[in-house]
Amino acid sequence: MRAQSLAKLLAPLAVGLLFLAAWEAVVRIEAIPRYILPGPLLVAETLWTDGPSLLGSLLVTLRITFAALIAAALLGGAIALLFARSRVLEISLFPYAVILQVTPIVAIAPLIIIWVQNTFLALLLCAWIVAFFPVVSNTTLGLNSADRNLAELFRLYGASRWQALWQLRLPSALPYFLGGLRISGGLALIGAVVAEFVAGTGGAETGLAFRILESGYRLQIPRMFAALVLLSFTGVAIYGALSLLSWLLLRRWHESALPRED
């Protein structure tokens, strides 16, 4: 069992190291110029030297990401509650939620940036549009998935709608909501980055996405890679944090949080 979990950790690590080594070797043997493809060692070095200034930009992007994620959780949850409350509302509004979800954000971001004066708000809105849907659709599904017999039991004991919501439907929906939130976390980051790409520089504060663009224009490819690495680590960290949150909330009772018996 322990040897197995060790293997689970080591296997992807080995693959990663092999890939990096091959990359470094190819760059050195073929003498590829750094403005075409920098080797991983150079990227790491750039990450170290440019780190402080990149981290400042990352913070700007993270602020938008987290604001969008929190808005997605709150507003998405609220919309799902409305849908669960009223079937009419759900049928009439759900298609528009789908339309918002499937419309490419790159296409509507320029409009939003023109319409909304405040840059932060504009970026937040873009990121939110990308991120809110999984929370809405998952939570709606969860609210409607409460055990039928339990619902009858609540009726038998004269539970009010409010009691049924708090004590039955919300706990039933929690695993679904958390599952949606995990998807939304990554999407919020993507939404924030895409919005920054479209918006360009946001005055004094520039996010990581703009730093990537800028590095590209100036052929500072190592810095571009460093920013990219930072961005993907951030995405992984967000996913990890939300998974941890989900595990903490569900570990006592939900199947998804149980250790596998294999």
Binding site: E152, L156, Y157
Partner: peptide
């Protein structure tokens, strides 16, 4: 409120402990 009902499945709330599941009818009233 004077009826007790037992279903074919246990029909328990998975997120609540045994005591809290049993408490449910009293809690609702």
């Amino acid at each position: 409120g004077s009826i007790g009902f037992v279903f074919q499945e246990p029909t328990l709330m998975p997120w609540a402990s045994v005591a809290d599941n049993i408490y449910l009818p009293l809690r609702l009233s």
